[in-house]
């Protein structure tokens, strides 16, 4: 009898020790997520079904009005515009970021770290200041126009700012490093022997890229896309500064509902819609990634 019991006791205590270890390791992270993610998002969800207090805050009368209002063409239009702008930004970031990351990964080792520092360097300066400096550079009376006119390349100043394209370029500039870094990480992990094998087996460079390199770096590509798309979608500084306030994105809308219109419930609905979008993109990511990884395994 004792023989059969003893191992069970020790397994139990082992389990308990495991549990304790897990709690110690995961506790701080979980607590952080609960306090700064779960609770705020729950609050936002709760606020979304109540009425606006006249001076901000909430009147606790349940209503669906905030949700129906979100389907008003004005707000849908802003949401669609935002997705479009963030989508174009992400696509451009891939086009520029992939070759850059590839080139960095192929550099000799000591140059690689220097190149990576250069990629990250813009983050050393506040995003707002970097964005504002673009106004100094590119406005009608800015440095670029003055220089071009001085050298007689143009005769009337170019209007480079305060358009939707200016917003896209501003976002691209701000978030490109977030595309390059995960791409670099996945490209760097590529086994060079695989490429050699493909070449030996007669694959063209293009074929090798599309059936080998691209699927193997898909996780980095998707991670980078999400890192660029999500902050672009919610950004409100760039549309305000480089868009001259003439391009409205969903981030501007949400900010205005909370800080100008004092309409917290509607702001909450808009915020939830962005959270939902982000959630959908994460789902897509995991689906695509699963497909790619199974493809590679086959």
């Amino acid at each position: 009898m004792t023989l059969t019991i003893r191992p069970r006791v020790s397994r139990d205590s082992e389990k308990r020790r495991d549990l304790l270890e897990r709690m110690v390791l995961q506790g701080p992270g979980l607590l952080f997520i609960i306090i700064f993610m779960a609770i705020p998002i729950t609050l936002v969800a709760i606020y979304s079904i109540f009425q606006r207090g006249r001076f901000g805050g909430i009147v606790y009368n349940a209503t669906t009005e905030n949700f129906t209002r979100a389907f008003d063409p004005v707000y849908l239009g802003v949401l669609v515009d935002s997705i479009k702008i963030a989508g174009i930004t992400t696509a451009l970031a891939i086009v520029i970021g992939y070759p850059t990351a590839y080139a960095i990964a192929k550099l000799p080792k000591k140059w690689r770290s220097i190149a990576l520092v250069l990629v990250v360097m813009p983050f050393w300066t506040n995003f707002l200041i970097r964005t504002y400096s673009w106004i100094m550079l590119f406005n009608r009376e800015g440095l670029l126009n003055h220089a071009l006119m001085k050298f007689n390349i143009i005769h009337t100043p170019l209007d480079l700012l305060y358009t939707q394209s200016a917003v896209v370029v501003g976002l691209l500039y701000g978030y490109l490093p977030l595309m390059i870094l995960p791409l670099y990480a996945s490209i760097e992990r590529l086994d060079p022997q695989l490429g050699e094998a493909a070449a030996n087996l007669g694959a063209t460079k293009a074929r090798a890229f599309f059936s080998l390199t691209l699927p193997l770096t898909a996780s980095g590509l998707i991670a980078g896309s999400i890192f660029v798309f999500i902050p672009s979608l919610g950004n409100f500084i760039v549309p305000e500064l480089l868009g001259g306030g003439k391009t409205v994105m969903v981030g501007n809308l949400i900010r205005d509902q909370f800080l100008k219109a004092r309409d917290w419930p509607f702001g909450s609905v808009l915020a939830l819609s962005v959270i939902l979008l982000v959630f959908i993109f994460f789902l897509l990511q995991s689906l695509v990634e699963k497909r790619y990884s199974s493809e590679v395994n086959e």
Partner: peptide, 16 residues
């Protein structure tokens, strides 16, 4: 007063 949201909506319609 209660017309605040109307101004906000018009502002959004104009700027977007």
């Amino acid at each position: 007063g209660t017309s605040g949201p109307m101004y906000t909506k018009i502002a959004t319609e104009v700027t977007s």
